[in-house]
């Protein structure tokens, strides 16, 4: 998802007998559905894993501004420009809420940012794919944010209070994103032949990368168990992916577009759509830094950060001067 492949620091899930009394009491609180708050005791591994997960989630929002921001200056109408700008602005807001949630765990936003910029922390693989035609803006909102919502809705019940509260806010805003995306691509699918071609191109290109957002198949996913016991991961990758496929296939059909995966078939027995797995070697390549846009995305973030340093320093220096003058006057 936005937080894919987050390495859980705990090795194997401990049985109650193996836990210290403090750990057992902590796990009991989580099992009872209680929220863990920043000042509560927590196992160091829980804290570490959460910092990684929330940080990665936040980074994804910020890097996620770039592929969509790529079209702000080319939006075809004033209304579309305003909608897209408001949407990309929301992503910045989501990043901000999430960084703040991570900060309650004792890490600063600047530290997290630096770990993103020098490659120590990751962001979602999806944002290493390019946006090549206007319809991609619709497809990103509809498919990518649609996939994100499926992951984020259950996270509103996650065990860590600040994370859960950030997700509540994020989810409220995300449904605008998915809807505006669907609305934009619908206009294309119902438009001129050229527009319809763009819509089909977007869906074809983004379908499998969207499926990859949920992370590797459960059988290969090594980090899930401890995170699920801690309720910082609420469902398995495959559960969420299936939910996304089931929800999205009828929407593609509604748009009158061809299904991007010829292997898509309703399976009466399972009560779900069967689908073809994405090419997982491509996924691991992207994670390793070899996606179509990895280098450009990180370069853009680094440039913004470096170019902005004098601004951050300047405004802070002014604030300090004013504070000092005020003290001197008192």
């Amino acid at each position: 998802m936005y937080a894919q492949m987050v390495q859980s620091t705990g090795k194997d899930v401990k049985t109650t007998a193996e836990m210290t009394p403090q750990e057992a009491a902590f796990q009991a609180r989580i099992d009872a559905g209680e929220k863990i708050e920043p000042k509560d005791w927590m196992p160091p591994a829980y804290r570490k894993t959460l910092i990684r997960q929330i940080g990665q989630h936040a980074h994804s929002e910020i890097v996620g501004q770039l592929p969509e921001g790529n079209w702000i200056t080319r939006a075809p109408t004033l209304e579309r420009k305003a909608i897209l700008l408001a949407k990309v602005q929301d992503e910045a807001g989501h990043g901000l809420y999430l960084y703040c949630a991570a900060e309650t765990l004792g890490v600063s936003r600047d530290d997290l940012t630096e770990m993103l910029l020098d490659g120590r922390m990751k962001y979602s693989s999806i944002f290493n794919y390019p946006t090549l035609n206007w319809s991609d803006i619709g497809a990103v909102g509809w498919l990518v944010d649609g996939a994100a919502i499926i992951n984020q809705v259950p996270l509103q019940r996650t065990s860590f209070g600040p994370y859960a509260r950030a997700m509540v806010r994020v989810c409220k805003e995300e449904s605008f994103h998915a809807r505006q995306g669907f609305d934009a691509i619908r206009k294309m699918a119902e438009g001129t032949p050229a527009q319809k071609k763009m819509a089909q191109d977007s869906v074809n290109r983004l379908w499998f990368p969207a499926l990859m957002m949920f992370g590797p198949p459960d059988k290969d996913s090594v980090h899930s168990e401890q995170s699920m016991a801690w309720r910082i991961k609420m469902n398995t990758n495959d559960e969420l992916r299936q939910k996304f496929v089931d929800q999205t296939v009828p929407q593609i059909e509604f748009l009158g577009l061809d299904l991007p995966d010829p292997g898509t078939k309703w399976n009466e027995e399972r009560g779900h759509y069967d689908y073809t797995d994405p090419d997982w070697s491509e996924f691991f390549d992207v994670i390793k830094g070899n996606g179509p846009c990895n280098v450009d995305r990180l370069a853009a973030r680094n440039k913004a950060w470096d170019d902005g340093k004098w601004v951050r320093d300047g405004l802070l220096a002014h604030a300090r001067k004013k504070a000092a003058a005020k003290v001197a006057a008192e």
């Binding site: 700008l85 910045a92 950060w305």
Partner: peptide
């Protein structure tokens, strides 16, 4: 102003500039 979206010195400024651009477009 909208060209800044996603490239500002700090998140809070990014969001504020987008608000300005949105007002101007409106």
């Amino acid at each position: 102003v909208s060209e800044w979206c996603g490239h500002s010195p700090v998140l809070e400024e990014d969001i504020a500039l987008a608000n300005t651009a949105l007002d101007l477009i409106g």
